[in-house]
Design a protein around this nucleic acid. Structure first.
Lengths: 201, 201
DNA sequence: AACGTGTTCTGACAAATGTCATCGACACTT
DNA sequence: AAGTGTCGATGACATTTGTCAGAACACGTT
């Protein structure tokens, strides 16, 4: 019996997947969580064979949780299941030691198959996505540039960002300028969009 | 036997829901579409009793499709199923003649129950959401203000917007200023976020 | 010790953005 | 015919944003 942990914030999606996977003869959903912070503790007590993690969760991100699991429960395989097939997400998932990366666009039938393949030691990755990840190249942004850019989402002003990151407004503008240059965009919002899209966050 | 039409762009969600609802004794999924433009033609040929529509779809929006269905297939009940419980969405869904409005956060068990209640002529709406919709008030933005604001998403410059909407750049700035005032925000991005959140689009 | 890289800051400048008063054109009321 | 309202546009203005050069400091490499 394959023991599964499911981390997904949308209740309906989580419930539907749990029911669905529970119908498989050789699978059993031993735990469901809707919050990233609960993943590690729950996994440590339930000892699943495979953890199916969404990336964008309240609390700890699925990618961070994946790294936690690799470190503290190495016999548990990690599969990332996400809405967004962003190249940078795939890259980070692989770096975090995930066994596979699935997008929610695909057919449900793939899911159980992917779980079995992951358990057999295979890597499960959409080939088109793998190509995109390679062509996107590594993240050119420094830590600070990422911080500032992340604080710039939904129209925060320079002063807002400066306060949030504890920097001088002038410095914030410099970092924004650098980020805009590196993303080849024309203003901060385009830079945010581009960095998000590439998974550089 | 209750005949269902399912419109949802995420393949995995669509497949999971179809399987799930197919398990119900009295239900049958007669059609699945992943594109808003296919909803009306498919409904006209398959004649479902209830249509379960996502709002954010490629092609025609679920809300527009709901209005189409009310006009051309009035005996078909429409249930909106969406990720975002935005007050404005609910308002527009009701205006389009939907029988119910569900958010994907809720438990799956509610779904089949909601379908049966809709078919019985009841309105199915999350009470908390209904309250939020009433408190949000009607859309204060004029058509042009909406156009301009919609064109301002993801960091378009004034010139970009002017070209897209066929207005003078100076006029665009005036509309943006008005929209910023009405949304009580400080810049165009905040205005976009706020208007989106309230469903004013 | 010299070099490169990243961080933090300043000052100066040009360009874009947000605000406001005002104007003409047009469609409605009354 | 005069009044009212909306729409699109203009010009002027202050503020914000984006760019650039430079300076000081910490950290690793070589």
């Amino acid at each position: 019996m394959i023991k599964l942990l499911l981390a997904e914030d949308q209740g309906m999606m989580r419930g539907a997947l749990a029911l669905l996977l529970g119908l498989e003869e050789d699978m059993e959903v031993v735990a469901q969580v809707g919050n990233g912070d609960e993943i590690l503790p729950t996994a440590l007590s339930e000892r699943p064979d495979v953890a199916l993690l969404d990336i964008e969760l309240p609390g700890r991100s699925g990618l961070d949780a994946a790294a936690d699991l690799r470190a503290q429960l190495p016999e548990c395989r990690v599969l990332i299941l996400t809405t967004f097939g962003r190249p940078g997400y795939l890259r980070r998932a692989m770096e975090a030691g995930a066994s596979g990366f699935l997008v929610k666009d695909g057919p449900v039938e793939d899911l159980a198959a992917a779980i079995r393949r992951a358990l057999a030691g295979e890597r499960v990755i959409d080939p088109a996505l793998a190509a995109a990840a390679l062509s996107a190249g590594p993240n050119p942004l420094t830590q600070r540039e990422r911080d500032v850019l992340a604080a710039a989402v939904d129209g925060a002003t320079v002063a807002d960002i400066a306060a949030k990151v504890h920097l001088s407004p002038a410095t914030v503008r410099n970092y924004l300028s650098a980020a805009i240059g590196k993303t080849q965009t024309r203003n901060r919002m385009e830079a945010v969009r581009e960095a998000r899209q590439k998974g550089w966050l």
